[in-house]
Nucleic acid binder design. Sequence first.
DNA 1: AATGAATGAGGATTCATTCAT
DNA 2: AATGAATGAATCCTCATTCAT
Lengths: 188, 188, 188, 188
Amino acid sequence: MKNKIIATSIELFEKQGFTETSIQHIVDALDVTKGTFYYYFQSKEQLLMDIHTQYIDDLLHRQQQVIAEYETAKDQLTAMFHLLIQDIEIQGARARVFLREMRHLMDTNSVEVKEKRDEFRLVIEEVIRQGIEAGELLESLDPAITAFAFLSLTNYSYNWFNPHGALTAAQLSDAYSDIFFKGIVKEG
Amino acid sequence: MKNKIIATSIELFEKQGFTETSIQHIVDALDVTKGTFYYYFQSKEQLLMDIHTQYIDDLLHRQQQVIAEYETAKDQLTAMFHLLIQDIEIQGARARVFLREMRHLMDTNSVEVKEKRDEFRLVIEEVIRQGIEAGELLESLDPAITAFAFLSLTNYSYNWFNPHGALTAAQLSDAYSDIFFKGIVKEG
Amino acid sequence: MKNKIIATSIELFEKQGFTETSIQHIVDALDVTKGTFYYYFQSKEQLLMDIHTQYIDDLLHRQQQVIAEYETAKDQLTAMFHLLIQDIEIQGARARVFLREMRHLMDTNSVEVKEKRDEFRLVIEEVIRQGIEAGELLESLDPAITAFAFLSLTNYSYNWFNPHGALTAAQLSDAYSDIFFKGIVKEG
Amino acid sequence: MKNKIIATSIELFEKQGFTETSIQHIVDALDVTKGTFYYYFQSKEQLLMDIHTQYIDDLLHRQQQVIAEYETAKDQLTAMFHLLIQDIEIQGARARVFLREMRHLMDTNSVEVKEKRDEFRLVIEEVIRQGIEAGELLESLDPAITAFAFLSLTNYSYNWFNPHGALTAAQLSDAYSDIFFKGIVKEG
DNA sequence: AATGAATGAGGATTCATTCAT
DNA sequence: AATGAATGAATCCTCATTCAT
């Protein structure tokens, strides 16, 4: 039941937004009553926190697998492009809720998620730093800014990329890898 | 007064979000009454629409100036990086409201803003297309995807870039231009 | 202008009801501003009072003409049936506002209109009383109840009679006169 | 609780009118909170609809009983006079709300109630038609107009008849039957 | 004679949450 | 494990009215 509530909430939060989705909407969609909801969750925010925690923990775990599996910065970054963009198809709704509704977490919840989010970003930053040291990436790069650039490409794609359209997730992640690695300008 | 309401609303919408900001909050901040608000705006959505229209119209206008002023795709894109990122300092709050709260517009409002947003994007797409034709940019590029990549970098920066921090807007737009034009990989 | 406001208000009050019609509606329909309204009327209730006074004064005046013009109770009542029912065509909206919205008058206004309304009814009662004394009408009648019966027929017709339908006002007042004078039962 | 809300609302709607009675008035009179009201009713209009439905359904049911119990048109109409006028004492407030506030129902609600109201009227029309065919009532009558005359007498009495005054309901319905059946004019 | 800005109280409705059962 | 009744604060919005100009 707890998982059913989470699954339904994600759908509704994605479609209508967190604030616009009432507990009543959620329980109506599941054909149970509000009491049931409050048996499983302390509050609406707690539900949002559970969704966030599940998502980011899973992502961190998969990021670690990618790091372990590949050796070079380029391979690791390519694998992360694939990981994040191909995820849209399966985890799209969850990811969009994660990216859009974080601001509704308060106090410790907010801090806790922010820390894990930062962790994810800092791993990327570290991959880039090691790529530079290994002579694989340009020395002129600022690892922090470059990590933000990477995350911009992946995260913003949740706003517009439709995995059921003509463009496939594989095509998009390949195209983004190309742009990110080689740039867009033709060499003189 | 209308402009004062808009200015205050932008601040509050940015800090707390559109839904979380009540008309009461807005008028309290201005020390007027709710009646005053509704004298100037038909509805809360109309206020949001006014903010959106002002922002996107201004942006489209400045985009046209950039296009007119520069000749090559590279220069035009560089100028747009500067335009958008240096804007964060002055227009940051307005831009963040624009980027985050568009979903609260409904029906015709939603369509109208979406069209202008698309127009802005399609101009970038066209710049890229002409850059390719001119032999300036890589032939392998998909102009549409590349335009999205460009917008990802600029728009996502509103989420994290703090113009009052150590990193300046000029530094960021330069760094992003470099990455976008030349990529991050060291040539063999 | 005052008369234009009254005319427009009657239309709106009839269509939407007194409470549901705002001053804003009225002035919008006339393409003037609220200030104009309050230049001519002290309050919304004063406007309603003016409408009521005009209507009932006119009616009392015409009732006196009928009384003066005809001699027998039957002729006077017939003339009043015609007066009231044929009025629907020209004065329908005004009459409906009068009959439906009287309850929104307060204190002295309410009393003043009620007195004139009672006066109209008591004249009918007196016509019936004199008809009985003259041997024209049945001795078994209670003049007060009979006057109410008369007013029921005329006033309730404002609720359903459509002067633009197949049934004409003349046909209706004739039919009502017949029923009221001779009843509906076939003599044994 | 639902019935308590209905009962209290009827009283308040009758005294002050539907629009003039706020949900706050209703819940204050019951010493509960607004939330409670909206737990039982979707909206203020739904409450009004419930009142209307209860009233008209009950009336239709009792009309059928009268039709079944009596044989001649005269007896059926007499019984309906009694039914409707004696009802004022017990159902007066409910009936007045029904007769006065129907216009606040919208869309399907309005149509639904109107249909049942028409049904009630058409049954009366049919009784009159059969009375004419049976040679009991005058052939010159128009059944539709005559039915309206009947309803005018009964419905308008809700506006002025006070069952706690000197005139009893029985006396009024007898007087109205006499007038309706035999008219007011003395036979030559 | 008319305007435009402002008020402040009150309207219907929604909602997260609680709690006894 | 789940229900159903109730709360009370907050939300958007409307409105009659005032008043300086």
